[in-house]
C-alpha cells in the first residue's frame, strides 16, 4: 500500500500527456472562443461609442445650422418687411401723385372747355349783336364802322355781364 515504484514515473508521463491533450482539445479552443467573444463585444462597444459620438456631433452641427437658419429667416423677414413697406409707400405716393395729376388735368380740361365755350358764346353773341345792330341801324353804316360799333357794344355788354356776375 505505501510503496513508491516505477508507477510514479508512469503517472507523471500520464499527467504530462493528459495536460498536452487537454490543452490542445479543451482549454485552447474554449479560451480562444472566449477571447474572440470578448474582442467582439469590445469592438461592438467601441463601435457604439463611436456612432454615438458621431451622432452627437451631427446633432450639434444641425442645431448650429438650425440656429443660423432661424436668424437668417428673421433677417429675411425683416428685409422683406422693410422692402414691402418702402414699396407700399412708393406705390401709394405714386398713386397719389397720379391721382393729383389726373385731377389737375381734368381741371385744366374743364377750364379750357369753359374758355372755349365762352369764346364761342362770345363770338356768337357778337354775331347776334352785329346782326341785330345792322337791323336796327339799317344799311347806312359802312363796314369799317361796323367793327367799332359792335366792339363798343360788346364792351358794354361785357361790363353789364360782369356786373351781373358780381
Amino acid at each position: 500500500m505505501l510503496q513508491l515504484n516505477l508507477n510514479l514515473v508512469w503517472e507523471m508521463i500520464n499527467l504530462i500527456v493528459l495536460f498536452l491533450l487537454l490543452r490542445h482539445f479543451l482549454i485552447r479552443p474554449v479560451t480562444d472562443i472566449m477571447e474572440k467573444r470578448k474582442k467582439l463585444i469590445a469592438d461592438g462597444l467601441q463601435n457604439a461609442q463611436d456612432a454615438q459620438n458621431d451622432a452627437m456631433k451631427m446633432k450639434q452641427e444641425y442645431e448650429d445650422a438650425l440656429k443660423g437658419a432661424k436668424q437668417e429667416s428673421v433677417k429675411i423677414l425683416e428685409n422683406a418687411r422693410t422692402e414691402a413697406k418702402s414699396e407700399y409707400d412708393r406705390i401709394v405716393g405714386e398713386a397719389g401723385e397720379r391721382a393729383g395729376s389726373i385731377i389737375e388735368s381734368a381741371k385744366e380740361t374743364v377750364r379750357m372747355e369753359r374758355e372755349k365755350t365762352m369764346n364761342e358764346l362770345r363770338s356768337e353773341i357778337a354775331g347776334l349783336a352785329v346782326a341785330s345792330a345792322g337791323k336796327i341801324l339799317g344799311r347806312q353804316a359802312g363796314s369799317g364802322d361796323d367793327q367799332n360799333l359792335y366792339d363798343q357794344f360788346l364792351e358794354e355788354v361785357g361790363e353789364a355781364h360782369e356786373d351781373t356776375d358780381k
Binding site: 505505501l2 513508491l4 508507477n7 510514479l8 503517472e11 499527467l15
Partner: peptide, 8 residues
C-alpha cells in the same frame, strides 16, 4: 495510491 499523489 501514493504513487499518483507523489507524481502530482
Amino acid at each position: 495510491d501514493l504513487n499518483v499523489t507523489a507524481a502530482l
